[in-house]
Amino acid sequence: MDGCTMLDSSKFLSLHQLVRKHISHGSHVYLEGLLVNRLPMAAVHEIIRAQLRELRVVSAPNGLAIDQLVGAGAVAELEFYFLGFMTRNGFATMRRFREATETGALRVKESMGYAICMALRAGAFGIPFIPLPDFRGSDLLSVRQDYQVMQSPYGSQDTVITVPALRPDVLMLHAHSADAKGNIILDEPWTNFTLTTAQACQKVLVTVEKVVDNEVFEPQTITLPHFLVDAIAQVPYGAAPTALNHRYEVSTSHIQLYQKHAQTQEGFDEYLQDYIQSCSDHSSFIDKAGIPPPWNETKSSSEQGGSSK
């Protein structure tokens, strides 16, 4: 990185600054990441360190992030459609989420994956609601008063279910790299739903493995154009202990350690103290948790992927 490009200091921030500047008590936050892939875990830990409260969170199916935010008392309301994931030790039930729901400490709005995606599409398209194909018969319609049954206005017998647009205050995601202008690359095969999600949200906050400050990316490689991105923080291993394509594996042993702690609130509080509060930043978490180093980039991912398990 020998280029001397000056990065825009209002956009390129430390993670500490990014979270405190752009997320507030009560913010409506959409967290990206799927099961064990690319959860914005560094940002989740920093939200906890910043002691943000009363957040309204919309979850992609990213149970680990949600469970930690709920256990730390940061969340007032949660919209979700699937929390938990498979590990080599079986299905990881999200205990803090489950307990907070069962005691009524957490307000939950169960949805459906496609309904949340469609609601984000509506947000991105700038329309107030969007119709989905009929799914009457599901009791989701009795717990979601905001989902309405409607006849098509175009004269057919079609019945649709309408869901209101989602326009969260903040999209928080982790990606592979940012260039000097703040264009973002997500190194996955097809990423255009991240663009839709970014268009639905008021602010887009991104942690990246790497800021390539002497380069501007080729247009066809860019996932999010710079003008949609409000803030960027460079955080190596920002998704760990979850995985990042071409970079690192799921840290199964650390997730197992978390799951053991999270069985009780006391155990969770211990984890919170040892692995989040007492770590000044994500790199000290990585050291403390003993997350293995990323793949040696000279080796092919197949050798690495095959040998690391």
Binding site: L34, L35, T87, G113, E188, P189, F193, L244, N245, G305
Partner: peptide
């Protein structure tokens, strides 16, 4: 992979679309 969300399910794919698609 143990999880169907593991990025190893990106490996050598022939093509891709997004989840809502």
């Amino acid at each position: 992979p143990f999880s169907t969300g593991d990025p190893h399910l990106f490996d050598n794919c022939e093509n891709a679309i997004t989840f809502p698609e």
